[in-house]
Design a protein around this nucleic acid. Structure first.
Lengths: 158, 158
DNA sequence: TAAGATTGAAAACTCAATCTTT
DNA sequence: AAAGATTGAGTTTTCAATCTTA
């Protein structure tokens, strides 16, 4: 049975798409202008950096970032070619690999964060009162699956 | 001068990305499962359908959808091959074309909307109280350029 | 059989260069 | 020179098929 949304819901939906396109497009542009890799690299590196042993199984990265496995395979290939991560055989499960962030990968994260974070602050932090940012995060949180691993976003802490 | 965002702002930022990925991924899946074209087709067709004469200049579509022109060229190619739009020479400006939605294009819009709208209602409309949806739309609106053409989102009205 | 991961082929996107008209 | 639009080359993503191990 199909039930259709009202105009207000449609407007909110469209603005989620529009805001994402605009904001993340700006972040990509800023990174490219600085000669740095795209956001997808940052996301993977950050997940690895935050993981307890600085490593994760490939499928765990995919779960956290909502990426399909075939896509991830080649993304990791590129990161590996650039020397930012390394693949190691997995002891517990002979099928899979463990992906670990390298020293260079951490260095890259540190170079990217000032550029990326500046865009976040300019486009979001500086544009809304703190109360409204809190409400935004809370509302969007309700739209996300609670069964997915918790993820607080790009939070380098350095 | 770079100023970095606080943890709350980062969380809100990350949730915009995550919500967009999840929600629009679901819409794409639903359309594909029904054997229908992707959202990008819907977006273009809807803009044309809403335009006064059922047509727009190509660059106008690009402005409304935040798409670069080289990308749009081939998207319109695909829509044209599928018979959903047609390109006509432009009287006022010899450089450009006018893109008009065809009868089949409107029919496609009508077939896609029940599928797409159902996802919007399920994933957004049904999950949040109306007051919160209103606040969400309002907040996200503040993050978007006011100089861009107004766009209220997918609103078929039929 | 299913899960983790990879691969080839095709589709789509990006970037820079190009063409035409303003 | 600038704007609207297209095109070729290269990169990335998507889809389906495959491989290995659980």
């Amino acid at each position: 049975m199909k039930s259709l949304p009202d105009a207000l819901t449609i407007q909110a939906w469209a603005r989620i798409a529009r805001a994402q396109t605009r904001l993340f497009g700006m972040a990509e542009s800023a990174l490219k202008a600085a000669g740095l890799p795209p956001l997808s690299w940052y996301d993977v590196l950050l997940e690895l950096w935050r993981a307890p042993g600085n490593d994760l199984r490939q499928f765990e990265i995919g779960q956290r970032l909502l990426l399909p496995k075939h896509n991830l395979s080649r993304l990791i290939d590129r990161l590996e070619s650039a020397g930012l991560v390394e693949r190691q055989p997995c002891d517990e499960d002979g099928r899979g690999h463990v992906v670990r962030i390298t020293h260079e990968g951490v260095a890259m994260l540190r170079r990217m964060w000032p550029i990326y974070g500046d865009v976040i602050e300019r486009e979001l932090g500086a544009k809304l009162p703190r109360k409204e940012i809190r409400a935004l995060a809370s509302t969007l949180g309700k739209l996300l699956s609670p069964d997915l691993p918790a993820r607080s976003g790009p939070l380098p802490n350095y």
